[in-house]
């Protein structure tokens, strides 16, 4: 690839990414009332997307390797810490440190 071709490729990735983010705002501009289904979707989608994002983060986890136990234990810990202490940073730090310990020391 020449330098120009590289820059064109970068521009394409940039415009493509921006397009996906701006898309709903183009179809449903501010002045116009979006269809009832879109308004409804806007209300329920955040809950579903957060569930999707958790699965998305775990998409490359292999069940063949340790039955995904490090992931399961760490996620369980994050949930318990969050329910107990109600402090996001403690839950995230606790879960992550435990996970790093699990994959580096316990399940090698």
């Amino acid at each position: 690839m020449s330098e120009t071709q590289e820059l064109i490729t970068i521009a394409i990735v940039m415009l493509g990414t921006a397009f996906t983010r701006f898309f709903p705002f183009f179809i449903f501009p501010e002045g116009k009332e979006p269809p009832a289904f879109i308004t409804y979707l806007g209300r329920v989608l955040p809950y579903a997307v957060m569930g999707f994002l958790i699965v998305y983060c775990l998409r490359n986890v292999s069940f063949q390797k340790n039955f995904a136990l490090p992931e399961a234990i760490a996620i369980f810990t994050v949930v318990v810490l969050q329910k107990w202490k109600k402090n996001s940073l403690i839950s995230i730090a606790g879960g992550t440190i435990l996970y790093m310990f699990l994959v580096q020391v316990c399940f090698v």
């Binding site: 490090p70 992931e71 760490a74 996620i75 969050q82 996001s88 995230i92 992550t96 699990l102």
Partner: peptide
């Protein structure tokens, strides 16, 4: 395993 920080954020 540090990348788990993002998973933990979404779980919280």
């Amino acid at each position: 395993g540090l990348d788990f920080v993002m998973t933990a954020l979404f779980v919280v």
